[in-house]
Design a binder for these strands. Structure first.
Length: 369
DNA sequence: CAAGGTTTTCCTGATT
DNA sequence: GAATCAGGAAAACCTT
C-alpha cells in the first residue's frame, strides 16, 4: 500500500521525468509509420486540448494508451484544474499508472480513486481513445521498445525505488530511454485480425540454428522482482521443499490492485497467445530477429529468440516471470485445438493450424483494403 | 455465482 | 549437460 504521503515524491519524480529532454517514442519511429499510419493520425480537434497555452501539455497529441506515467499525472492535474476539483481528496498513490493502465480502468475504478471526477475523467479519456482504434498499438510499442533495448542495453535496474514492483517494472522497462507506456490494450478490445504490412519471409539469415536464447534483453528478472507474495519461486526451489502442483496463488486481489494499478493479467478478449505470435510475425520490420517465417505459405515459423518473445509476452500480460518454457506449454495446448500443428523434429518451429487465422498472405492483404 | 475457456506454473521423462 | 519437447495436473483468472 504505497502511502499517500509520498505524493510529493511521486510528483517530483514524475515531473523530473516529464521534463527530461527525451521523448523518442512514436513520433520518430519510422516502423510505426509503416502500419497504422492512418490510424495514428492524431485528431487534435477534440475537446480535450489544453487551452492552447504557450506550452502544449505533455500528453496532448498522443494517444492516451501511450502516455507515460508523467503524462498521465499531467493530464489528471489538468483535469483537476479544469474542473476546479479539490485534489486533496484524490489518492495519488493510485495514480501511479501509465496511459495503458489508465485506459484499462473501468469507470468505477476511476470513481474510486477520483471520486466524482472519475466519471469526467472516464468520458474524457474515452473521447480521446476512441479516435485511436489501433489495436496493435501495444505490440508496436512493445516491439519498438525491445528493439531499442537491444541496441541500447538496459542499464542496471533501480532497485532502490520506494515504489511498488509495478513501478520498478516500469522504471526498468520504460527507463530513461523509454518514456511512455508499453501500452497494453486500450479500452477498445475487439479481436484482432488486423494485419497490415507483413511482407513475406524473414530477414537476417544470421540465426541459422542458434535455437534461441541469446537473449540479451534478459528481462528474466523474476529474481530481481521477487516481490512478496508474487509467485517467484521458479523450478521447484528446493529450499522450500516440494511445492504444491499447479499455479501458485497470487497476492490477494486488493494488494494486487494496489500494486498493479488494477490491471488484469489476462489478455483482453481477442489477444491470445497465438495472435500475439502471429502479429509479431506479421511485422518483421518490428520484430527484427525475434521470430521468422520458415515457410510463409504453409504458416511454418520459428522462434529465433525464444526467451525474448516470452518476455515480450510476459510484458503484455504483466507477468515478468514468463519464460519460453511456459509459453511453449501454452503453444502445445494449441495442437489439440488445431490452432497449431506439430512440426516434428524441429526445435522452436511451429506451424499454424486450420483453426488459426489472419496470418495467410491473402488474409493479410485482404485486411489491408 | 457457476461453468467453461485459456493460460500459467510445475513436474517428470524423453529427445536433441 | 543444457535446451527443448511432451503432456499431465492443478490453479488462476477471464468471459459468459
Amino acid at each position: 500500500m504505497a502511502a499517500t504521503c509520498e505524493i510529493s515524491n511521486v510528483f517530483s519524480n514524475y515531473f523530473s521525468t516529464m521534463y527530461s529532454p527525451e521523448e523518442p517514442a512514436l513520433a520518430s519511429v519510422p516502423a510505426a509509420a509503416t502500419f497504422g499510419a492512418e490510424d495514428l493520425v492524431l485528431t487534435l480537434s477534440n475537446p480535450q486540448m489544453p487551452l492552447e497555452g504557450p506550452e502544449k501539455a505533455s500528453w496532448s497529441g498522443k494517444q492516451p494508451q501511450f502516455w507515460s506515467k508523467a503524462q498521465v499525472l499531467d493530464w489528471i492535474s489538468y483535469q483537476v484544474e479544469k474542473n476546479k476539483y479539490d485534489a486533496s481528496s484524490i489518492d495519488f498513490s493510485r495514480c501511479d499508472m501509465d496511459g495503458a493502465t489508465l485506459c484499462n480502468c473501468a469507470p468505477e475504478e476511476l470513481r474510486l480513486v477520483f471520486g466524482p471526477l472519475g466519471d469526467q475523467l472516464y468520458s474524457q479519456l474515452w473521447d480521446l481513445t476512441s479516435s485511436f482504434p489501433d489495436e496493435l498499438s501495444w505490440i508496436i510499442e512493445l516491439l519498438e521498445k525491445d528493439s531499442m533495448a537491444f541496441q541500447e542495453t538496459l542499464g542496471p535496474f533501480d532497485q532502490g525505488s520506494p515504489f511498488s514492483q509495478e513501478v520498478l517494472e516500469e522504471g526498468r522497462q520504460a527507463s530513461p530511454s523509454f518514456p511512455g507506456s508499453y501500452g497494453t490494450g486500450a479500452p477498445s478490445p475487439g479481436s484482432s485480425d488486423v494485419s497490415t504490412a507483413g511482407t513475406g519471409t524473414s530477414q537476417s539469415p544470421h540465426s541459422s540454428d542458434s535455437g534461441g536464447s541469446d537473449v540479451d534483453l534478459d528481462l528474466t528478472d523474476s529474481k530481481l522482482f521477487s516481490r512478496d507474495g508474487f509467485p517467484d519461486y521458479k523450478k521447484g526451489d528446493p529450499k522450500h521443499g516440494k511445492r504444491k502442483r499447479g499455479r501458485p496463488r497470487k497476492l490477494s486481489k486488493e494488494s494486487r490492485e494496489c500494486l498493479e494499478g488494477k490491471r488484469s493479467k489476462h489478455a483482453p478478449r481477442g489477444t491470445h497467445l497465438w495472435e500475439f505470435i502471429r502479429d509479431i510475425l506479421l511485422h518483421p520490420e518490428l520484430n527484427e530477429g525475434l521470430m521468422k517465417w520458415e515457410n510463409r505459405q504453409e504458416g511454418v515459423f520459428k522462434f529465433l529468440r525464444s526467451e525474448a518473445v516470452a518476455q515480450l509476452w510476459g510484458q503484455k500480460k504483466r507477468n515478468n516471470s514468463m519464460t519460453y518454457e511456459k509459453l511453449s506449454r501454452a503453444m502445445r495446448y494449441y495442437y489439440k485445438r488445431e490452432i497449431l500443428e506439430r512440426v516434428d523434429g524441429r526445435r522452436l518451429v511451429y506451424k499454424f493450424g486450420k483453426n488459426s487465422s489472419g496470418w495467410k498472405e491473402e488474409e493479410v492483404a485482404g485486411s489491408r483494403n
